[in-house]
């Protein structure tokens, strides 16, 4: 039963991810990406990681993709970027194949060791909170700072020159 759902959601996640990268239209890709996120969230839920599953939906599928769609739709269809495939593809494929091989190797190795059993409350909100806000609170705060710096940097880079542009545009 569980295996069935695992393969269902896992398979769907892979398929939707493939569809996402093969669509030429940004909005269509975004929709498929959302579907992919939902499948991943389902996988998390099956691992009893309810909090992470919900966050996956709330943050990624819900918030980020809504922003993404909004901006894409608002600005209209972006110009199609011609990828410089000739030089990039051999390099990318080599790296990908190497990574995949490493992954497969690790997976085949770990299979014999078996998974350590975890308690039911492992993925609960309390558990996650304790890990983040008690055990690793310094790293958590530092990460927060880093993101803040990134946001400020993005604002600085994206700001418009002051001359000749009406105030208030694009603040939505």
């Amino acid at each position: 039963m569980e295996a069935l759902f695992f393969y269902l959601f896992g398979g769907l996640a892979v398929i939707t991810a493939l569809v996402t990268i093969t669509r030429r239209d940004a909005v269509t890709s975004a929709f498929w990406l959302i579907a992919c996120f939902l499948n991943v969230a389902a996988l998390f839920a099956m691992l009893s990681a309810q909090f992470i599953a919900v966050m996956q939906i709330l943050i990624y599928a819900g918030a980020i993709m809504v922003f993404f769609l909004f901006v894409t739709m608002f600005l209209g269809e972006p110009r199609r970027v011609r990828l410089n495939r000739g030089r990039a593809i051999p390099l990318i494929s080599t790296v990908t194949v190497l990574l995949l091989a490493y992954l497969l190797m690790r997976i085949t190795n770990t299979q014999h060791r078996g998974f350590p059993s975890i308690s039911d409350s492992y993925g609960s909100v309390a558990m996650v909170s304790r890990k983040l806000l008690v055990d690793y609170v310094f790293l958590f705060e530092v990460t927060g700072l880093l993101l803040l710096v990134a946001v400020i940097g993005a604002v600085y880079v994206a700001r418009k020159p002051r001359t000749g542009v009406g105030e208030g545009e694009g603040h939505v």
Binding site: G168, G170, H171, V172
Partner: peptide, 8 residues
């Protein structure tokens, strides 16, 4: 012009 929330 898109909606402005700061406009007059």
């Amino acid at each position: 012009m898109p909606y402005s929330i700061h406009g007059p």
